[in-house]
Computed example of a mutant assay.
Amino acid sequence: MEWLLIPFFIFSVITIYLIQQCYREQKTFQQKMHLLQNKIVECNQKSLLQNNQMQLTDELEKTLKTNKATLSDAIFHLHYDLFELLSQNNLLKQRK
């Protein structure tokens, strides 16, 4: 009967070892998953920030185009008014 206890004892030790090993692996897996989840959240936040920056850049580009057109138009009209004023006062030089 004692010879049956030895295999049972060996089986019990192996089972306990495997259960502990499984617990360690599960804990390690959970830690890795937690790190991956944090990294995903960080990447998502960076992506949102970059999207916002791109949107601001697009809006700034549109604003600059509009302002450039307005400024160019204003400069053109200033030049036109200047030539008109010089012409009215006979201050334009004639090329020879």
Rank of each mutant, 00 (worst) to 15 (best):
1 M>W: 12
1 M>C: 12
2 E>F: 10
3 W>M: 05
4 L>R: 13
4 L>Y: 14
4 L>F: 13
5 L>D: 14
5 L>I: 13
5 L>S: 14
6 I>F: 08
6 I>G: 06
9 F>N: 04
12 S>Q: 03
14 I>N: 08
15 T>C: 03
15 T>E: 02
16 I>C: 15
17 Y>G: 01
19 I>F: 04
20 Q>V: 04
21 Q>F: 08
21 Q>H: 09
22 C>T: 02
23 Y>M: 06
23 Y>H: 10
23 Y>G: 05
25 E>I: 00
26 Q>I: 04
26 Q>F: 03
28 T>C: 05
30 Q>K: 13
30 Q>F: 01
30 Q>V: 08
30 Q>S: 14
31 Q>R: 08
31 Q>K: 04
31 Q>S: 06
31 Q>G: 01
32 K>S: 07
33 M>W: 00
37 Q>W: 06
39 K>Y: 00
39 K>L: 10
39 K>C: 02
40 I>T: 09
40 I>H: 10
42 E>T: 04
43 C>V: 11
43 C>R: 13
46 K>P: 01
46 K>M: 04
49 L>K: 02
49 L>M: 02
49 L>V: 01
50 Q>V: 04
50 Q>D: 10
51 N>F: 11
52 N>L: 11
52 N>E: 14
53 Q>L: 13
56 L>K: 12
56 L>Y: 08
56 L>F: 07
58 D>I: 15
58 D>N: 15
58 D>W: 14
59 E>Q: 15
59 E>F: 08
61 E>V: 09
61 E>S: 13
62 K>E: 15
63 T>W: 12
63 T>G: 06
65 K>M: 05
66 T>G: 11
68 K>D: 03
68 K>A: 05
69 A>W: 04
71 L>V: 03
72 S>C: 06
72 S>D: 13
74 A>S: 13
75 I>D: 09
76 F>R: 11
77 H>Y: 06
77 H>G: 00
77 H>W: 04
80 Y>I: 08
82 L>R: 01
83 F>W: 00
84 E>Q: 13
84 E>V: 03
85 L>F: 13
86 L>M: 11
87 S>F: 00
87 S>M: 03
89 N>S: 14
92 L>A: 02
92 L>E: 05
93 K>T: 09
93 K>P: 07
96 K>G: 09
96 K>T: 08
96 K>W: 06
